[in-house]
Design a protein around this nucleic acid. Structure first.
Lengths: 129, 129
DNA sequence: TTTTTTCGACTACCACGGTAGTTTTCGCCG
DNA sequence: CGGCGAAAACTACCGTGGTAGTCGAAAAAA
């Protein structure tokens, strides 16, 4: 029993739900229509499968099903990023950033911004405490 | 036809091949035996499938097949990381690092080290030029 | 009330990662 | 030369993401 590993469509659907909080099959279909030319039934099927896996919750309003995300964005991001870090970088997040730098995806300005962000985060964390 | 998206076992196999340059089925099997208790045939099947997808190359030495990686580590890392960044962070690598910081996976010391690394990389790049 | 539209439910496929058993091949040793 | 043993080849199966058609029920329209 390996992990479910959400695919592209599932992620796209969740993205829609994260933005709208609630949506019907038609809503999701319409939102994704531009990027992917999928049939409505495809979205419906996917939503049903995702409901089975408890990724989304479904509520009935009359004869229409209304879906909402049951996992939150941060949790999904954390899980997927953590997964990648575990798979490729032996669980060391720094190694991932090293990779990004070596590939030229981050420049000095970006790092400086990150530095500020760390400072800010530290402050917020102590404020909460 | 979506992308193949290498799985855990495939990655583990590639890891072995990246370290040894060349390996037989038995070699790979032995290397992975500790972590995963897989049958030799499983490794063999996976290697054959990977050969079909041109992830590895196969060379015959008498009766034995010798495999070597046909994709390089950096390329795979780049591809998988790029994929994740595209999927989750709208193609912006900085957003990924922001996430890491917000999750507390990177502290100030780590950032300072990254800064040094950027400096070094910039130097190396100009040296090559 | 009858017809048409709209939804969801069910079913069916395909590709592919992962896992392994069965069969065939082939070189080597006695 | 013949049989043994190891390696490769073939086959099979499951779960799941992705894609969509069909069908039936129910609501809306005529």
């Amino acid at each position: 029993m390996a992990r479910p590993r959400l695919g592209d469509l599932q992620l796209a659907i969740l993205e829609v739900l994260w933005e709208r909080a609630e949506a019907t099959v038609a809503d999701v279909h319409e939102s994704l229509l531009v990027d992917r030319g999928l049939a409505t039934t495809t979205i419906a099927t996917m939503l049903r499968k995702m409901e089975e896996r408890h990724l989304v919750a479904q509520r009935r309003d009359g004869r229409v099903l209304i879906y909402r995300a049951r996992v939150e964005r941060d949790a999904v991001h954390r899980s997927l990023v953590g997964d990648l870090v575990a798979r490729l970088f032996d669980g060391d997040p720094k190694a991932l950033v090293h990779h990004l730098i070596d590939e030229g995806d981050l420049d000095a300005a970006a790092i400086d911004e990150l530095r500020r962000r760390v400072q800010k985060r530290r402050k917020e964390a102590s404020d909460v405490r």
